[in-house]
Every structure is written in structure tokens, then in C-alpha cells.
Amino acid sequence: MVSAMEIYMLLPKTNCKKCGLPTCMAFAVGLLGREKKIEECTPLIEEKKYEAKLNKLREVMAPLESASETGLIIHPEKCFGCGNCVVACPVNVAADPTHCGVGLGPQSDKVILKVEDGVVVANNLEECKRFGPGRVLCNACTATCPSKAIEFV
């Protein structure tokens, strides 16, 4: 996953404050935390000399764009389809105790994680413990993944 420093290196580094933040580094952190959008850095968008940087920045930020609102990213190409996350996720277990709870594939539509076509897919992310005002930093799915196929950003 891209770091704030890597993002910073692709910014104008002029600390012009047009984005509303005091420094480009702060803006980089804002981008990483998905509180800021690339378009808020107007010099980067408007000035031709930054074109290469802008393109590169869009490229490195693309995986972040696909992150769900909880910051959950699934890398299907790394996934073993083992179902560890399906069985460990507390929301899954509460929604489908007789299947997910005992190690079987879910039968309920209310679960977040399930395995389809050999890899994990996520639904109902608003149910995730990391979502909303009362969120907690649950890591049941990432901690049980043997291949770093799930991460939070």
C-alpha cells in the first residue's frame, strides 16, 4: 500500500495552501485518509508541468479509490478462498451462527464476507464494526488471512 511520503513526492511540494491545508505533506496525509480528493490540489490539476506527477498519483491512488467506506480492500488475486475471515468475522457469526459460526459457508444474505468463485467478496459493509460513528478497530478478517488478501486503509 502507498505511503503518505510516496504521495507527498508526487505533489507540487510548494505548500501553497490552496487545498485548505498548511502543507503538501498534510494534504498527502489527507489523501491517504480519504478526507481529501486529488482535485483539491488545483495546481497539480491545472499546471501542465505536473502532468506526469498527476498521472502517477492517480495510478497509486487507484486502489484507495476502490476502498469501501470502512477502508476495506480485498485483493482477490491473493486470496486463497480459505474462508478464515468468513468464519472469524463477528458480524458474519452473529448474522449466521449455524453456518458461519461453525465453519460453513453462509446461508444468510446479511453477512459481510463470503467466498464466491474461489475468492472472498464483501457485501453489507455498513454492518462492519469499523463503520459509522461507534466504530471499533476490529481486525478479525485481516488477522486471520493467510495471504494478506484483505487490508484496511
Binding site: 486463497f80 478462498g81 474462508g83 460453513l104 463470503k114 467466498v115 464466491e116 468463485d117 474461489g118 475468492v119
Partner: peptide, 14 residues
């Protein structure tokens, strides 16, 4: 073609 296979791991899907 195999469609919407549920609960197969990567190995089983293969």
C-alpha cells in the same frame, strides 16, 4: 461454464 460457485476455496474452484 461454472457460474457463481459458492464456498469453494481457490483450490476447489480450480
Amino acid at each position: 461454464k461454472l457460474t457463481k460457485a459458492k464456498n469453494l476455496c481457490r483450490k476447489g474452484h480450480g
